[in-house]
Write a protein that binds this DNA or RNA. Sequence first.
DNA 1: TCTGGGGTCCTAGGACCC
DNA 2: TCTGGGGTCCTAGGACCC
Length: 418
Amino acid sequence: MTALVDVNNFYVSCERVFNPGLRGVPVVVLSNNDGCVVARSEEAKALGIAMGQPFFEIQDKIKKNGLQVYSSNYALYGDMSARVMNLLHRFAPEVEIYSIDEAFLDFTGMEHTDLYARALEIRETILRCVGVPVCVGVAPTKVLAKIANRLAKKDKSGNGVQLLSGDFRKALQATEIGDVWGIGRQYAVFLQQHGVKTAHDFTQASDAWVRANLSVTGLRIKKELQGVPSVKAETEIPARKSIGTTRSFRQPVPAGPELRAAVADFAARCAEKLRRQNGQASTLTVFLQTNRFAKEEPQYGGAFSVSFAAPTSSTLPIIRAAHYALEKIFRSGYRYKRAGVLLSGITPPDQGAQLCMFDPVDRDKHQQLMTVFDSLNVRYGRNTIKTGAQNTGRQTRLTSQSKLSPGYTTVWEEILCV
DNA sequence: TCTGGGGTCCTAGGACCC
DNA sequence: TCTGGGGTCCTAGGACCC
């Protein structure tokens, strides 16, 4: 048996821990740049606010309905997530951290009568120790545990725990096909057109038909719905195969120098992430995009990739390559709204990188320098030291986060005073 | 006026090898 | 008129997740 633990309205719940005045009122948390709604309290959902809805569309609800709005505070959410995940290790030998707010727990071999009690205990412990509410779904497979969790969340009068075992046909019949984990919008439309409306209907389709139309991924989902585990557990956090840093700008950026500095910032951030997993990248890609919503403006999008002579994780050649790529795609006369840097072809830490006889980079020197960079930035805070190509901090910020809550658990100066 | 960011996996097709 | 069989690697595009 597998348990899926998922925090309710995670980002909103994190804000509520340190600001009890937010309880019982509609609250939303916005995406980067204060663009879209990415988390909603139950009260906000009741106001008809949709997931992913642009913020400007719901601004009237601030005055009219007392809607509370927050910029996303990833330092806070990341730290709260770590607290939840730490606690979960008390309850199972294997914990698969699936996302910032959910984890699968291996309940194999547990007595059937204990499953429910254990799930309840998880919920109570996390509420007491971290302060956020979770729901727990327990079932024979991961896809079924997802369904169980969803049922637990939907049952407002319940205790946040749902167990699926024995005959769970009813649960499958009550689950729309689009609500099944792994069935997205495109597949949902396709399946409905073919008469597959519920999770139960999907289990009645033939293997060959599912395989032909939804590939092996779809077939695995079908098996899982039938109670046969087919999606393997990933208890080790796998090294990233690609690393990206991309941003939308508050105001479209027309000029070269601002873009160069922004792209240098993105590249430096990517290099930091890369070094944190002890990887080396062999390819770098830069892309630029105008505002796709401004239909009346001239549109342009460009991308260019650079291969390194030898894989590297040094910020300096990575920024240099990013600037080279930027020059290849930059066209004047456009207002750019979005840009990003991606690293790929990543060599895992246990695998030595293929070197190059004519590598212009002195690898040892760079490695020492980057070690100093990283340790200073860990000790004194991000961007304590950076390259001259990056934004100095005196420039106006290119993105906005106007409603950011304090770093309650991660910044000394911002710890809550009572 | 204002519309996010960061990932993964699978498949088909093309290019290549012997 | 008729042109094999068995592979690998890479990439683009499409689907999905939170």
